[in-house]
């Protein structure tokens, strides 16, 4: 039996690399530099428990930020009342939140226009 290791993603993100944050902000869907790809791979394979996800409030229009429970049958818990009006808006905000959680450093560059 081959199971996933929830802590299998061992890459360490350098939280000072604002150039990588800028690269992502300016091109959310890639292709990405190898370094940014590693950052994203890490962010996308964190443990299920607590992983940031989206809940559809109104299909194609409004999404709500939530965290997975990591437990079968237990619903995700919403994060405050953070709502988005596009997937792109959500992706950038989730990236910023994950950056802070994984590195302890806030992204200091501006949001996209």
């Amino acid at each position: 039996m081959l199971l996933y290791d929830p802590n299998g993603a061992i890459y360490n993100i350098d939280g000072t690399r604002m150039d990588l944050a800028k690269e992502y902000r300016d091109n959310l869907r890639g292709p990405f530099s190898l370094e940014l790809q590693r950052v994203l791979d890490k962010m996308r394979t964190t443990p299920l428990k607590g992983r940031l996800v989206l809940l559809v409030v109104e299909p194609f229009k409004i999404f709500r930020l939530a965290r997975l429970s990591g437990q079968r049958g237990v619903s995700p818990s919403t994060v405050q009342d953070v709502r988005y009006h596009s997937i792109a808006e959500a992706e950038w905000d989730i990236f910023k939140r994950r950056w802070l959680e994984l590195t302890g450093i806030s992204i200091s560059i501006s949001d996209p226009n």
């Binding site: 299998g8 996308r44 394979t45 299920l48 996800v53 559809v56 049958g73 619903s75 995700p76």
Partner: peptide, 29 residues
Amino acid sequence: VKFDSHNTENLFEAPISFSEDELYLNEHR
């Protein structure tokens, strides 16, 4: 898989979003 499989977000390379149907399925195994 969006709830249970560790690698799903990596496979789809974007944050996972859940519809009402999917949230219901999770609660009603």
